[in-house]
């Protein structure tokens, strides 16, 4: 069976008439139906741009340079090459998106009812009564206690957590096949974050919706996802199931990230940290590995030649020269002695 979403060799460039440089390069992602897929990365890693590319919402100066974004629902479409009109039919109905800022993502001038049912009006044909009922049901499903009251409220009358629930209700009301969640809980407090993640898991099972979770927080990935792609400086550096990434990370960057979070629990120890700074797109190396300048294992080759994506074990990819047969063996043993 074809995957629900198949992104192949996606590259995005920043392009004005003066400057032209690559930002996102060679992204390959396959998301099956009902799958919960995560993209994790730091700011500037290109994770959000990838999601915007799927929605065809890239800002004017960013252009898809190469690659395809295939969406297989009733029919097959390439979202990298699709007319605006076609895309409008996809948004909201087949793919929907929730954003980080629940404060600004709702229009302050309209009631929740208006905004919630707007999506339905565009994509489906129901009578007014039916629509209202669907809206109220949806609000109940996202855990809002007095849906009739909330339908009449304006966004400013709701708390941050409630607004994010409304956003989720809006995203799911047309029962899309794929829900893209771009840092959906970053602006929320931990106790509310726990509620929202729980809710998203529950609803995706209920509606058979696949989730693409974009986040910087590895904890959120572990809570919600089955598979994960780790992005750094516009490229996927490692991709596998969540268990494999957390238990046997292969790429030095993933290892560094996990080590720095894990050593947080250990008070006596100095925190593990990755040296240096995240490069900005104009600092990306033309050749070689984009992580090489911060990598403790970097070799000459890493600065001259872009690493290939290696299959380090079944269903586990990592983009690093260390995985060339010999290097990989060394890497394993050093990991063992450290832990």
């Amino acid at each position: 069976m074809k995957p629900l979403l198949n992104i192949e060799n996606l590259s995005i460039n920043y392009m004005t008439n003066k400057k032209d440089f690559n930002i996102v390069k060679d992204v390959n992602i396959k998301i099956d139906e009902r799958m919960k897929y995560g993209i994790v990365g730091e700011s500037g890693s290109g994770k959000s741009l990838t999601s915007l590319a799927i929605m065809n919402l890239l800002p004017e100066v960013l252009k898809i340079q190469e690659g395809s974004i295939e969406l297989n629902t009733d029919s097959t479409k390439d979202l990298a090459n699709i007319s605006k009109k076609e895309m409008r039919k996809v948004r909201g109905r087949e793919i929907s998106m929730i954003f980080q800022e629940p404060m600004t993502a709702l229009d302050p001038l309209y009631t929740i009812e208006y905004q919630l049912l707007e999506v339905l009006k565009i994509h489906k044909t129901y009578s007014k009564k039916e629509m209202y009922k669907i809206g109220v049901d949806m609000l109940k499903k996202v855990g809002i206690a007095r849906p009739d009251q909330v339908m009449k409220d304006y966004p400013h009358q709701l708390s941050g957590g409630m607004r994010q629930r409304v956003m989720i209700a809006m995203a799911l009301i047309c029962q899309p096949k794929l829900l893209i969640a771009d840092e959906p809980t970053t602006a929320l407090d931990v106790t509310i974050q726990a509620q929202i993640l729980d809710l998203m898991n529950e609803l995706s099972d209920l509606h058979n919706t696949a989730i693409l979770m974009i986040t910087h927080d590895l904890g959120v990935i572990l809570e919600t996802c089955e598979r994960v792609a780790v992005m750094y400086a516009g490229q996927i550096v490692e991709e596998s199931t969540v268990e494999k990434i957390f238990e046997e990370p292969a790429h030095p960057y993933t290892k560094g990230l996990l080590s720095s979070i894990r050593s947080l629990g250990n008070k006596s120890e100095e925190l593990y940290s990755i040296p240096g700074n995240v490069p900005t797109p104009d600092q990306y190396q033309e050749l070689g590995c984009r992580f090489a300048t911060r990598c403790p294992y970097a070799m000459d080759q890493c600065f001259n030649q872009e690493p290939l994506m290696y299959q380090v074990q079944d269903d586990h990819l990592s983009k690093c020269w260390l995985h060339v047969e010999e290097g990989r063996a060394n890497e394993r043993s050093s990991e063992r002695t450290r832990s």
């Binding site: 910087h216 720095s260 947080l264 040296p275 700074n277």
Partner: peptide
């Protein structure tokens, strides 16, 4: 701050 930078700063503070 990003995770990888956060630990640098925490170490510095300590």
């Amino acid at each position: 701050l990003d995770v990888s930078i956060q630990s640098q700063i925490l170490n510095l503070l300590i």
